[in-house]
Design a protein around this nucleic acid. Sequence first.
DNA 1: GTTTGACTTGTTATCATGTAACATGAATAA
DNA 2: TTATTCATGTTACATGATAACAAGTCAAAC
Lengths: 143, 143
Amino acid sequence: MLDEARDRLAANGARLTPVRQRTLEILLESHRAMGAYEVLDRLAAEGFGRQPPVAYRALEFLVEHGLAHRLQRLNAFAACLHPGHDHAPAFLICRECDMLAELPAAPVRDALTELAAESGFQVERATIEALGLCPACAGAARP
Amino acid sequence: MLDEARDRLAANGARLTPVRQRTLEILLESHRAMGAYEVLDRLAAEGFGRQPPVAYRALEFLVEHGLAHRLQRLNAFAACLHPGHDHAPAFLICRECDMLAELPAAPVRDALTELAAESGFQVERATIEALGLCPACAGAARP
DNA sequence: GTTTGACTTGTTATCATGTAACATGAATAA
DNA sequence: TTATTCATGTTACATGATAACAAGTCAAAC
């Protein structure tokens, strides 16, 4: 995963420096949405800077290069699980257990792009996030 | 618009009190996305309370009752332009002029709901926001 | 009509999230 | 090697949001 990321970045003339790599690893390890300050704490504990911009810059960099996503509803970030494939994912956030699922959302994005185009609006980036119940929690709620 | 809002609320046993009404008016007048603190300043200048919860409570109330929307991407709020009609609107935000358009997005929502259902996820609320260029700004950019 | 209880509004205090501006250090290219 | 660009770190601040409590308002029940 990291090697793939490094290659992808090199192709764009960007570098996976230590902070950036560690930030990506932290996101990948925890495998859930993390707030910037949570990431910052981890970084600081490992000897990196302890001021907010350190985390925000690394996270922003990862998002810019498609290696992580920003979740608007949660004010949080998560590693991208399918870097490069379909880059307009939709996110499903379980309101019970906070589980996060990322799914390829080409049809949804297309519907949105087309709808916008009818008003002459050019979509560049779309945020598609749903709140609801994951299968496990839905099952538990209706026994 | 206000009368319609009042009626809709009365039907739900909720009241359009002065702060709430004024908050809705402020959103409607400016007809764009406003931060909570911007709304708060206006309210305070008109003799209402000047502490954050005053604005947040009024805004939250309006959102709860479908009279306003919260825009995750902007950390902002905007009056709902079609209260009651299709309540899963998509938002188009122009990155040049900050124009905000709200459009009925039933097809997009349906596509998302169906996609989620394939994974067993039950969508309750969806956030669909697009960043891009409005017709005016797109025209100006490509002369 | 007064009392009860739910709701509304306001406060203080604090926390969480995000960014601007600047100084220093490392990598790259001329 | 020197100029230039990019990265990292800092301080300081701006913005966004909520918890906890006190006081006022209003309608319904008695």
